[in-house]
Amino acid sequence: MMTTLLKLEGIETYIDQFHILHDVGFEVPKGEVTVLLGRNGAGKTTTLRTIMGLNPATQGSVTFNGKDITKLPPYKVAKEGIGYVPEDQGIFGDLTVGENMRVAMQKEDDSTHERMEWVLNLFPDLKTFWNKPGGQLSGGQKQMLAIARAYMNESELLLIDEPSKGLAPIVVEKVMESIQEMKEKTTIVLVEQNFLMASRIGDRFYILDDGQTVHQGQMNELEKDESLKKKYLGIA
């Protein structure tokens, strides 16, 4: 039976005077990759930021693991077990790779060390450049660091915002392979413009348009639905 890990209902979010999200709602099943699709400005990033409490919802509810987290500040949302990889990766440029990872570690016990070992095996570049400032990494390495760091924060759910943005195709391939491996360990909500990549690793999708959820379904269904892809994603 499918267990819902994250549930959004009737979310309304404003940024300053702008009404960005209108009645957004979706469910994220445990152990799956849920992909948020939509054109630029559809409200995908704001949805992730609303879940994190960075742009809190004015109406509606966000439930994680059965607990209402709508009004929690970002640090408490993170402590509940939600890791966030923002669009700009949020790397602390003057801190080394190791220091970037250490900021995310809430404690140092066996389980943290196991996580660290696993994630460094997944992203061996991070081990190689452990003492290099984060700001000097390549785009792909920064993305890997951002994902690894979010995972180190004892996350049961990872919110990843456009991991392929600005990366060379070969690097995108590598990042996507890593995310696919992360599926084994954690649930993922992925915002992605690259439909091919999203369809490869996504289990289900939600399409956002003008701040509303307009379609949902299994990823393999969307792959066959040319009219839907054309209408909302601009894919001919």
Binding site: M52, L54, P73, P74, Y75, A78, K79, Y84, P86, G90, F92, G93, D94, L95, E99, N100, R102, V103, A104, Q106, R149, A150, N153
Partner: peptide
């Protein structure tokens, strides 16, 4: 120290520090 690390990270990106579970 960890406090120092958080302060240095906070100088660079407060929002990200919060998103990593730290009460900035």
């Amino acid at each position: 120290t960890r406090v120092g690390l958080i302060v240095r990270a906070g100088v660079m990106d407060k929002e990200m520090v919060q998103s990593l579970g730290i009460n900035i």
